[in-house]
Amino acid sequence: MSPSETGGKGTPIEQNFKTPGLRGAKTTTLFRAVNPELFIKPNKPVMAFGLVTISLCVGYLGYLHATKENNQEFYEAIDSEGERYMRRKTSKWD
């Protein structure tokens, strides 16, 4: 077969080969606009930046939670004479 018979794209086998996944499927522009993650190639620097950012956010929330728990044991109380002192928090259930 000559290249003119196959449309200039190589052998007939290459011509009938489909791209795997949804990239080779016939879809509408609306479907591609609503589901871009199916058609865009992964961007590793953006993924790394997002992973680091989310990790830092979770770490910061854990830090805030840990420091908040340490400060909850005592509070400043004022007695009947007007003096301030630190008092341990107690529960009504204790």
Rank of each mutant, 00 (worst) to 15 (best):
M1P: 13
P3W: 03
T6C: 06
G8E: 02
T11P: 00
T11A: 08
P12H: 02
Q15C: 14
Q15P: 02
F17D: 14
K18N: 09
K18T: 00
G21K: 02
G21D: 04
L22F: 04
L22I: 05
R23V: 11
G24V: 08
K26L: 15
K26Q: 15
T27W: 10
T28L: 06
T29A: 15
T29H: 15
T29C: 09
L30E: 14
F31W: 09
R32Q: 11
R32N: 04
A33S: 14
N35F: 15
N35C: 10
P36D: 01
E37F: 08
L38H: 12
L38S: 08
F39I: 02
I40Y: 07
K41M: 14
K41C: 05
K41H: 09
K41Y: 12
P42Q: 05
N43G: 06
K44P: 07
M47W: 10
M47Q: 15
A48Y: 06
F49V: 05
G50V: 05
T53W: 14
I54R: 07
L56V: 07
C57E: 01
V58D: 06
V58N: 05
V58F: 13
L61D: 01
Y63H: 05
H65M: 03
K68V: 02
K68F: 07
E69K: 09
N70L: 15
N70W: 12
N70G: 07
N71H: 10
Q72D: 10
F74T: 06
F74A: 03
F74G: 04
Y75C: 11
E76G: 04
A77N: 12
I78K: 14
I78G: 07
I78W: 12
D79R: 00
D79N: 11
G82A: 09
M86Q: 04
R87A: 04
T90N: 00
S91R: 05
S91Y: 11
K92H: 11
K92C: 07
W93G: 06
